[in-house]
């Protein structure tokens, strides 16, 4: 089975809140002191792919679209024993929305070859839009299944388990297919072995510019208009503390419940 996993490099979402800053003029997050990390759901996707490869023969290609620093997420994937890695370098380094990203990824995938399974994280920890997977399937003209947390290979395709509000759904699907991956207890990303980290530095990474995959600035601009960020702000966090009065504990509980109900109603 040929698997392609899309990975996104994002600002570390685990930084302390007061270290988080935005560049309001450009409507994007400011780098500040934050490190760059692989988006967690992308890591879940890679982990799911690695587990699938352990059970069914196959090859894993890791693909990312981003600035040159995004090569780090590919090195990490190679350290985890992804077979191939490809970076589409975004020289402009501007904010790209889901539609642009899907367009670029689709072009790169077409050039990379045929894949049975294209795996994308459910959403990214920076913008949390959760659109890229679906839009990518659209671009490639493939069916897609979202919120998948487990995959098994079958004779003529795959059996997928997807999370829904009501529980799990089991989906049988034929390939090729795009899936978006969410997390569960079984796809907690593994960590690489030290020797593999050292070896990964020597493995080749395909490095393409947008021109290498025949995407022009006009294409990008056109795709980008599908979505526009109008403003960006950090919500102000306020805390109000209120003590419920009452003569007895029962009274207090009663008053507490009523107050709670009124808050819920007004919200």
């Amino acid at each position: 089975m040929k698997i392609l996993v899309c990975l996104k490099q994002i600002l570390d979402p685990d930084i302390p809140p007061r270290d988080f800053a935005i560049d309001r003029d450009n409507r994007r997050a400011a780098r500040g002191s934050a490190n760059l990390v692989t988006n967690i759901f992308c890591e879940n996707a890679l982990e799911t792919a690695l587990q699938l490869r352990e059970k069914a023969e196959g090859e894993i290609t890791a693909l990312t679209f981003g600035p040159s620093s995004a090569e780090d997420v590919l090195r990490k994937a190679l350290a985890l024993k992804a077979d191939h890695a490809c970076l589409v370098e975004d020289e402009a380094g501007e904010y790209r929305n889901s539609a642009t990203t899907a367009l670029v990824l689709a072009a790169a995938i077409r050039k990379l070859g045929e894949f049975d399974l294209i795996m994308v994280g459910r959403e990214a920890g920076d913008w949390g839009a959760g659109q890229t997977g679906g839009l990518l399937a659209e671009q490639l003209g493939l069916p897609s299944v979202s919120f998948v947390d487990s995959i098994e290979a079958t004779a003529d395709g795959v059996t997928l388990r997807r999370q829904t509000e009501l529980g799990w759904e089991k989906v049988e699907a034929t390939t090729p297919l795009v899936v978006t991956i969410t997390n569960n207890d079984e796809n907690v990303p593994r960590i690489p072995k030290t020797r593999d980290i050292m070896m990964s530095a020597r493995k080749p990474v395909t490095n393409w510019k947008l021109s290498d995959i025949d995407v022009t600035c006009d294409d990008i601009t056109a795709a980008g208009t599908a979505l526009e960020v109008v403003d960006l702000a950090i919500p102000e966090k306020t805390t109000e503390c209120e003590f419920i009065e009452g003569d007895s504990i029962d009274e207090k509980i009663d008053a507490f419940a009523k107050r709670l109900a009124s808050i819920v109603q007004s919200a």
């Binding site: 302390p16 809140p17 490190n35």
Partner: peptide, 11 residues
């Protein structure tokens, strides 16, 4: 992050 405390709220 250069420190071992995952998820610390402090810098």
């Amino acid at each position: 992050r250069g420190h071992p405390f995952k998820g610390t709220q402090l810098s």
